[in-house]
Deep mutational scan, measured.
Amino acid sequence: MSIQHFRVALIPFFAAFCLPVFAHPETLVKVKDAEDQLGARVGYIELDLNSGKILESFRPEERFPMMSTFKVLLCGAVLSRVDAGQEQLGRRIHYSQNDLVEYSPVTEKHLTDGMTVRELCSAAITMSDNTAANLLLTTIGGPKELTAFLHNMGDHVTRLDRWEPELNEAIPNDERDTTMPAAMATTLRKLLTGELLTLASRQQLIDWMEADKVAGPLLRSALPAGWFIADKSGAGERGSRGIIAALGPDGKPSRIVVIYTTGSQATMDERNRQIAEIGASLIKHW
């Protein structure tokens, strides 16, 4: 067993022997301040990774656009098919120029040779490549099948209805392509620590998230040296922004954090800054 596999296998073990965790309302004060600064709703939840206990939450059962955070769930569904012998990570998928959609920095470079399922998941999570996500959605049967996968996990809230990039439209009061912070946090925890996926697939999923290259201005910008984070960000229309993450000190994750916002007129930089400040408060009061 590799060191990384050992780390993920012992996530519940280490967490069980940690000192009790206590909620700190100071972080919620910052979440509410972010709402004021952005002029928009902000949803927040913080779960203990081992027990699933909610440590703090704000608007945990209000719907927010998922945006690209759905790509972690998508690759979880792909990995479940791999575990069941219905898919192979090494299978190569070929596609054409007509398949390319807006923001496809990886797939646009491989029109000639195609990409493997493993490479597509890596591109979808680490670079948020939209064509990679659409190609992977095709392998599982489309958005409705991802929703069905989530329902089978016990998540009857999260739903995907459309493809990239239309799913980022974020129309107010439109339930399409949305989740709730509580539902997303619980589902992410199941994917990373539950028995739904094999140990190898859980490790692969967290490795992809740990290698995320496009979430630097968010929670990662607030992390002290030595902290662990595996995350996936999302951005959408109407001032929408979000991030889902597993993080913790001492090089291992111990909490799940989900943050979503929508309806702001603020710039992307300002949305990023507010999420980073929430992260800084979380870490300060850990």
Rank of each mutant, 00 (worst) to 15 (best):
Q204D: 09
D33T: 08
L137K: 01
I256R: 00
D48K: 04
S122R: 10
D33R: 05
I283C: 13
D174Q: 11
I283Y: 13
L219V: 05
E119A: 14
A170M: 13
T187E: 06
L199F: 15
S51Q: 09
L136K: 00
R220S: 11
T267Y: 06
T186D: 15
R162Y: 03
P217G: 10
A185H: 00
G239V: 01
S221D: 12
N130K: 02
V214Y: 14
R176G: 05
K190F: 08
P25E: 10
Q274W: 06
T126A: 08
E195S: 13
A40D: 04
S264P: 04
G248I: 00
Y44V: 06
F228L: 13
R159I: 11
A170S: 06
I140W: 08
D83P: 02
P143A: 10
Y44K: 00
N134W: 02
A276D: 05
E175Q: 07
F149T: 15
T131K: 02
R241E: 04
L55F: 05
D48I: 08
L79T: 03
S80T: 09
M127L: 12
L205T: 04
E62Y: 10
S96H: 10
R92I: 14
E270I: 03
D113K: 06
A200T: 12
F64P: 00
I278D: 00
L136Y: 00
V214W: 14
E56H: 05
G239E: 02
G85T: 09
I54S: 12
R220L: 04
H285P: 03
M67K: 02
K71H: 01
I171D: 15
A222H: 07
P60W: 09
R255Q: 12
L100K: 14
R91I: 07
D161L: 03
E61Q: 15
A185K: 01
A123K: 02
T261V: 15
R273D: 09
V214T: 11
S240A: 09
I45W: 02
A230D: 00
L192P: 00
T193M: 15
V42A: 07
H24V: 09
L218E: 02
S201H: 15
D207K: 09
R91W: 12
L282T: 06
R92E: 14
D250S: 04
E87N: 05
A170V: 12
T69N: 02
R59T: 02
D155I: 02
T139M: 12
M67A: 15
M66I: 09
S240W: 00
A235M: 06
F70P: 01
N152K: 15
E102M: 05
R202M: 07
I256N: 01
G114S: 08
M66G: 13
I229G: 02
Y95N: 02
G279D: 01
R220P: 03
P65Y: 03
N98G: 08
T139E: 15
Q274A: 08
L191A: 14
S68K: 00
V157I: 13
G114R: 04
S221L: 04
D129L: 01
G263N: 11
V117N: 15
W227V: 02
S240F: 03
G248W: 02
S240C: 12
I275Y: 10
M127A: 08
G248S: 09
A246I: 12
I243L: 13
T138F: 14
D155Q: 02
G76H: 02
L247G: 01
T158N: 02
A211D: 15
M66T: 10
G39H: 06
P60V: 06
S221Q: 11
Q203D: 04
I93S: 05
A34G: 06
V258I: 06
S104P: 02
P224R: 05
E102Y: 11
K71T: 01
E175C: 05
C75L: 09
I125N: 05
N98A: 07
K30E: 04
T261N: 09
D250Y: 04
L38H: 07
I243V: 13
E175Y: 11
L188F: 05
G76K: 00
V31G: 02
R63H: 07
R238Q: 10
I206T: 08
L146Q: 03
Q274C: 07
L218K: 02
N173M: 10
A77T: 06
I229Y: 15
K144D: 05
Y44P: 00
P172K: 12
N272W: 01
D113N: 03
S122D: 10
G248F: 02
A230R: 02
A40Y: 09
D129S: 01
Y44N: 00
R176I: 06
R162F: 04
M67F: 14
N98D: 11
L167C: 11
R159Y: 07
A245D: 01
D250N: 04
G242Q: 02
F70M: 14
F149K: 06
T267E: 07
M66Y: 12
K144Q: 10
L219Q: 06
I259H: 00
H285W: 08
G263P: 08
D177S: 02
D177L: 00
N152H: 11
A246L: 12
Q86D: 12
F58D: 02
T131L: 09
Q204N: 15
L146I: 13
S221N: 06
Y260S: 04
V214I: 12
K30G: 05
T147E: 04
L49T: 10
K71S: 00
A132R: 01
T69W: 00
N98H: 10
Q274E: 10
G142E: 05
E195A: 14
T27E: 03
N173C: 06
R162L: 05
E270N: 03
V42I: 04
E46T: 08
T131E: 03
L89D: 04
I275K: 01
I243R: 01
G154Y: 04
K109F: 14
M66N: 02
I54H: 14
V157A: 05
G216P: 07
T131R: 02
A215Q: 08
A123H: 05
L247K: 00
G142W: 01
E237L: 13
V257L: 10
K144V: 06
N272T: 12
A132H: 01
D48Q: 03
I206R: 05
E35Q: 07
